[in-house]
């Protein structure tokens, strides 16, 4: 699986976009808000201490990363969470975690055996 990381790394590269998009607390808060359903930019901006334009910018980043889709209704352009990119990011993390969990378990067993051999 470690090499799957390599494959992902050289893939043209939604996953990097997804993680870059997630690496911002405001954008994560926007995603959390969208998890409750479709919201317009104006409504979305309301709880944040930033301008509608700034929220709009964040939405663009989220959209490019495939995390959010937007409607076409001119000004309102309601945003909605798009699950697939988030799912792929989560799958990547799960793979990564499983790889190192198994490796560390095996390393632990290996080190115990190596020490027994050294002591015995």
């Amino acid at each position: 699986m470690f090499n799957r990381i390599v494959e992902y790394a050289v893939m043209p590269d939604t996953l990097s976009l997804t993680f870059a998009a997630l690496a911002d607390p405001t954008r994560r808060a926007i995603l959390a808000r969208l998890a409750d359903g479709e919201v317009t930019v104006n409504d979305l901006a309301e709880p944040f201490p930033i301008s509608v334009q700034a929220v709009s910018k964040h939405l663009k980043v989220l959209e490019r990363a495939g995390l959010v889709t937007r409607g076409r209704m001119a000004q309102l352009r309601p945003s909605r969470l798009h699950g697939q990119a988030l799912g792929e990011a989560a799958a990547w993390l799960a793979d990564y975690r499983a790889f190192w969990k198994d490796s560390f378990d095996r390393l632990d067993e290996h080190l115990r055996a190596a020490q027994q051999k050294a002591n015995g």
Binding site: A98, D102, Q115
Partner: peptide, 25 residues
């Protein structure tokens, strides 16, 4: 890990040891 650092280092850097633990089961 319950092992001295030199052992853990060797597990990473010794040709004979790396294959013993690297990767998913």
């Amino acid at each position: 890990f319950d092992a001295p650092r030199a052992f853990v280092w060797a597990a990473w850097t010794d040709l004979a040891q790396l294959p013993a633990w690297w990767g998913r089961r």
